[in-house]
Design a protein around this nucleic acid. Sequence first.
DNA 1: ACTCAGGCGCTAC
DNA 2: AGTAGCGCCTGAG
Length: 113
Amino acid sequence: MTGEGGYEAIYAVVRRVPRGRVATYGQVALLAGRPGRARQVGYAMHALPEGSGVPWQRVINASGRISFHPDSMEHAVQRALLESEGVAFGPGGAVSLERFGWKPRTKAGGRRR
DNA sequence: ACTCAGGCGCTAC
DNA sequence: AGTAGCGCCTGAG
């Protein structure tokens, strides 16, 4: 087997992120079965074609901030998309992961907030 | 608050 | 074909 594709696992996880919620690169990598490969998640998002149906905007860094350069257009686009989905940015352009952080459902009791 | 260092895999020149 | 730089993370100073 030439090995399975690669990014599919990451895309699958990102696709599972509900609207109005955000996930971190490390979290996606972990859920995709690639702990520690957070960087690859960023590349997967960058290599993602338009109209792929993968909400790449819902993926941000562990600081709750957009990883793109603050002065870059991608930054503004991602932020606008997230705000459009109901995600609120705090001072400094940071999202409260405690509130908007995607909490993947585990078998344990879903004690969310 | 910031810098430095280690780990990990990929992309671009 | 080798080297730096990245949509990163974490920990320590």
